[in-house]
Simulated scan of single mutants.
Amino acid sequence: MEDWSPLLDAIQWPAMLATVAASWLVTSLNKGRRHTGFWLFLLSNALWVVWGFHTQAWALLVLQFCLAAMNIRGARKNDTADA
């Protein structure tokens, strides 16, 4: 059986980069950039969930599901925004 541990340990870095980039994009005045930011946030949520399961960080998992729900809400509100 292969040891996936080093790969799973490394997932935290792209998750962190995706979170920072998404934070930058959702603050844009451009609707398209905000839209991309919300999708990037959802990707980061998924990456954090994978890492959280691997490390048994249960509070992080709950946080990511809550944040994903808020990101979905934000994406929907952005889609209906005029700007």
Results as ranks from 00 to 15, higher is better:
20 V>P: 00
58 W>N: 04
73 R>Q: 15
13 W>G: 04
64 Q>Y: 00
15 A>V: 03
63 L>I: 05
61 L>S: 02
23 S>P: 01
12 Q>K: 05
72 I>Y: 06
52 G>M: 03
28 S>R: 11
57 A>Q: 05
73 R>T: 14
52 G>Y: 00
59 A>E: 10
48 W>V: 01
42 L>Q: 09
23 S>R: 08
18 A>Y: 01
53 F>H: 09
41 F>L: 13
15 A>G: 04
32 G>A: 08
28 S>C: 11
23 S>E: 10
62 V>D: 09
31 K>W: 08
82 D>S: 13
7 L>Y: 11
6 P>F: 04
14 P>D: 10
47 L>M: 15
53 F>D: 09
77 K>N: 14
47 L>Y: 02
37 G>S: 07
31 K>E: 09
45 N>F: 03
52 G>F: 01
29 L>A: 15
65 F>I: 10
3 D>F: 08
2 E>V: 12
62 V>Y: 03
10 A>P: 01
68 A>G: 11
70 M>V: 14
19 T>N: 13
81 A>T: 14
39 W>I: 13
18 A>N: 06
63 L>N: 06
9 D>H: 06
41 F>S: 15
66 C>P: 04
71 N>Q: 13
57 A>I: 01
68 A>T: 05
12 Q>A: 12
40 L>N: 01
46 A>L: 15
11 I>D: 06
56 Q>C: 07
40 L>K: 00
77 K>Q: 15
31 K>Q: 14
7 L>H: 07
62 V>N: 04
10 A>F: 11
13 W>I: 12
52 G>Q: 03
26 V>D: 01
59 A>L: 08
64 Q>E: 12
8 L>Y: 03
62 V>T: 09
38 F>P: 00
49 V>F: 10
3 D>N: 14
78 N>R: 07
65 F>G: 07
31 K>I: 13
1 M>F: 08
45 N>Y: 05
40 L>F: 02
12 Q>M: 09
31 K>H: 11
42 L>I: 15
76 R>Q: 15
36 T>A: 12
16 M>L: 15
75 A>I: 13
